[in-house]
């Protein structure tokens, strides 16, 4: 190759680079001046991902800069928080995860971050509805039937969950302690495989998020036995809640947005305002309804931090009670 074309290519390249970046030179304090990266701690297409994408699509309009959603799944969101802890705290890197890596993972596995110190929570998008279901042809007509069976046949009642240490699993473990029965836990990876196994009759019951079972309950192929919280469900007044059957605890899972610690306060305030506003739009409210989210009202700032801390402490004792805590190293 001749030298001249090679040099002119390099010159052209540099010129192109300068031309493309020109708008950024005059960057002043006005945030945001470039695209924001929204990391998602779970795979594309999941509930967290859908929430992140829809809220970002609305928020980017008022921010005036695109929000680029990137999935970084792994370790139930723990991998992402490990990365977020060391990300530049400039407001251009945000994360959407469930509260699992904040409030439960640190008690269950050795994580590479301090969940209560390394991050600034921005806003809580909502709480995930969960419940315990059986097949429509199951002999368990109501919750008590299932408990009676488990009491008579210790260890024979098989139930599927989206995974060990997930809130639907923790709930069942604690029920077993309260009712003094023994269930056989069959863990799956995610709501869907657990639901598939239940529909195929390979497990007797399943305890998962509502997204997994809602359509099957509506279609009549599954029966909802119990809702894992105190709030009842619209359109299904007969289904008992935890409160109704006398379980004095809850195991909520939240979807939330956070940023690395030490991001400038004005930027955090702006983000809280923008995302809170985005949450209240009819578009997001519809997505949240489709995703079976509860309490879709912005919870932000100090109140949100306080809620997270209380959840962290609550799950700490809870996980110790059901005997799932990590081994001390």
């Amino acid at each position: 190759m001749n030298a001249k074309p090679a040099i002119s290519v390099v010159v052209a390249l540099i010129a192109l680079m300068l031309a493309l970046t020109a708008p950024c030179w005059s960057a002043d304090a006005k945030y945001p001046t470039k695209p924001i990266h929204m990391w998602v701690g779970f795979a594309a297409g999941g509930s967290t991902d859908i929430c992140a994408r829809s809220v970002s699509a609305i928020a980017e309009k008022s921010l005036g800069q695109p929000i680029v959603v990137e999935n970084k799944p792994g370790g139930g969101g723990a991998l992402l928080l490990g990365l977020l802890a060391s990300a530049t705290p400039d407001g251009y890197t945000l994360a959407t995860t469930s509260d699992t890596p904040y409030t439960r993972a640190p008690h269950l596995i050795n994580v590479k971050y301090n969940s209560m110190e390394d991050f600034t929570p921005i806003v809580r998008l909502g709480l995930q509805r969960q419940g315990i279901v059986v097949r429509a042809d199951s002999p368990f007509k109501k919750w008590q039937d299932l408990i009676d069976f488990a009491r008579k046949n210790p260890g024979q009642l098989t139930y599927g969950t989206p995974g060990p240490g997930t809130t639907p699993h923790l709930a069942m473990e604690k029920i077993a302690i309260q009712e003094k029965v023994r269930f056989q836990h069959i863990p799956f990876q995610g709501d869907t495989p657990a639901m598939t196994a239940l529909l195929g009759g390979h497990v007797m019951a399943a305890s998962t998020g509502a997204l997994g079972w809602m359509q099957h309950v509506k279609a009549g192929s599954l029966r909802l036995l119990l809702i894992i919280e105190s709030e009842g469900m619209e359109g299904m007044p007969d289904v008992p809640t935890f409160k109704k059957v006398g379980y004095g605890f809850e195991t909520p899972t939240a979807q939330m947005i956070s940023a690395p610690k030490r991001a400038p306060k004005p930027i955090i305030d702006k983000l809280i305002a923008v995302f809170s506003e985005a949450m209240m739009t009819p578009q997001f409210q519809k997505v949240a309804r489709d995703q079976e989210l509860l309490s879709v009202k912005p919870l932000a700032g100090a109140d949100f931090q306080k809620w997270l801390q209380s959840q962290y402490n609550m799950y700490g004792t809870f996980i110790k009670e059901v005997g799932l805590q990590k081994e001390a190293k």
Binding site: M1, N2, A6, V10, L13
Partner: peptide, 11 residues
């Protein structure tokens, strides 16, 4: 040649 390598790498 160096020139060739640099040129192709840049391109």
């Amino acid at each position: 040649s160096w020139k060739g390598a640099v040129g192709m790498a840049a391109l």
